[in-house]
Design a protein around this nucleic acid. Structure first.
Lengths: 219, 219
DNA sequence: TACACATAGATTGTATACAATTTTAACATT
DNA sequence: AATGTTAAAATTGTATACAATCTATGTGTA
C-alpha cells in the first residue's frame, strides 16, 4: 500500500467493519469513554456493532494483543486504563525512537517513497496558510506515516504509529498555541531538508528537536 | 502477577493451550520453519493443535496484531518474514529503549519488586558458576523481565519483551564466547548496583553498556 | 446480622453449520 | 501450446448451538 490515499476524505470508509469497530473501541478506551477496569461484555458489542460473537472475539483478541484490554480466562475483557504519566512516557519514547527512524528512512528511502514525501510536504506548505487544523493534522500524520514506512523496519513503524494513535486520542484536550501550524511546518521542513540533502544525522537531529518540542507543547 | 515462577521448570505448562499454540507458530516464523510469504491454512492449524477454527482464528488475529503474519481479507494468513537486518534493527532499538526503562524502573520500583530483583540477582550470581547455559538464560530473562515490569509503563514493557522474544528465536545460531556468562553477570551487576544505590542515571548508563555489548556479541 | 451454600441466570469457550469468496483444475477456443 | 472460460472444490467469513465456567441471588444456619 503506497499512495496518498490518506489525503482523501473517504479514506476511513475503505476499512472493514471489523477494523472500524476495533478502532472505535480503542478510541473509547483512550478518551476515557470506557473506564479502566470496566468489563466489556461480548454480547453488548455484538448489538452495538451488529455482528456475531465470532468477529467480536477476534476484535477483542487484537485489542488484548495491543494491550488496551486484558482478557481474563473465563471472566472476559477488562479495560486497561492509560494514565497521564503513560502519555508522558509515550511522548518520551517517541523522542528516543523517532530520530533513529528518520535516520534509517533517509538511508533507506526509495525513489517512489521520496516522491510521495516531497508531494506531501508541498501540500503541507500549501495548506498551512489555510489554518484548517483538522486537514493539517491529517496531512501531518500522512507525512510522518510515509517516514515511518520508509525506515523499512516493521517494528519501528508499528511502534511509532501506535504512539501517535495513543497521543492523538488520549491527548484530546490539549490547547494549541496560535502559531502551532507554522511552527510545526518549520520543524517538518527541517526534517524534509535532511531528506532532500540525504543527510541521516542531520535528519535525526531535526527529528529529535521536533519530537522534543511536541512533547513540550503538551505542557 | 508478581512472583519468581519463571524459575520453575513447569512454568510453561501454566500457559493456556491457545497461548502455547500462538507461541509455537510465532517461533516457527522467527526460526524460519515457516517461510516468508507462505500461506497458513486455518484447517491445518486446527488439526495440528487439535482445536476448532474459532480459537485458531483468534490466534491468527493476535499474531497479525503483532505483525508476524498478515491477514488478507478472504485470502487468509501469510507469514511476514524477518530479515537479518530486522534483527540488527531490533537490537539497536533495544539500546535506545532499555536505558530509559532502567532509569524509570529505578525511580519507580516498589519494595516488593526490588526484593524480587535482589533475590533473582543472587540466583544469577550463584548459578553463573554452573555454566548451565539454558538455566542461566532463563534467569537472565527473568531478571530483565522484572526490570521491564518495574518501569511501570506497559508500552515499554511490551516493546522490550517483544524484542527479546524476536532476538531469542531469530538469533538461534549465535556462538557465545567462552566467558559469556560471567561477562553478562558483571554487566547485570552494574545495573543492579544502580538499583541498590537508587541512581537512575547510573542505571541508564549501565543498561546502555549492556544493550550495546549484547548487540555487538551478535557479530 | 453475618456467613456459607445452593441454584438459576448470565457469560465465556469451543464446535459446528452455512454463506461468501477464492482457488483449482478441467475444458474449450484460438 | 497458450489463453480464456467455467464449474467444482477448498477456504475464509459469519452465525449459531452447546458446553464449561462464573456471577448473582436467595435461602438456611449460626
Amino acid at each position: 500500500m503506497l499512495s496518498l490515499d490518506f489525503l482523501n476524505n473517504e479514506y476511513e470508509d475503505t476499512k472493514s467493519p471489523s477494523k472500524k469497530a476495533e478502532e472505535y473501541i480503542a478510541i473509547d478506551i483512550l478518551t476515557g469513554n470506557l473506564r479502566p477496569g470496566q468489563r466489556i461484555v461480548e454480547q453488548d458489542l455484538c448489538e452495538k456493532f451488529s455482528m456475531s460473537r465470532t468477529p467480536v472475539r477476534e476484535i477483542l483478541s487484537r485489542l488484548a494483543a495491543g494491550g488496551l484490554i486484558e482478557l481474563v480466562p473465563n471472566r472476559g475483557a477488562f479495560v486497561v486504563g492509560i494514565t497521564e504519566r503513560d502519555v508522558d512516557d509515550i511522548f518520551y519514547m517517541k523522542t528516543l525512537l523517532y530520530p533513529q527512524c528518520v535516520k534509517w528512512a533517509i538511508e533507506r528511502i526509495t525513489e517512489e517513497e521520496y516522491s510521495m514525501l516531497e508531494e506531501t510536504f508541498s501540500f503541507m506548505e500549501f495548506y498551512t496558510a489555510t489554518e484548517d487544523m483538522e486537514k493539517m493534522q491529517k496531512i501531518n500524520r500522512g507525512f510522518e506515516a510515509i517516514i515511518y514506512n520508509a525506515c523499512h523496519n516493521a517494528e519501528m513503524e508499528a511502534a511509532l504509529l501506535k504512539y501517535d494513535f495513543i497521543i492523538r486520542y488520549a491527548n484530546l484536550d490539549i490547547k494549541y498555541p496560535l502559531n502551532y501550524l507554522p511552527t510545526v511546518l518549520e520543524e517538518h521542513r527541517a526534517i524534509f531538508d535532511a531528506f532532500r540533502a540525504r543527510k541521516p544525522e542531520q535528519g535525526a537531529e531535526a527529528a529529535q528537536i521536533h519530537a522534543f518540542r511536541s512533547m513540550m507543547r503538551r505542557k
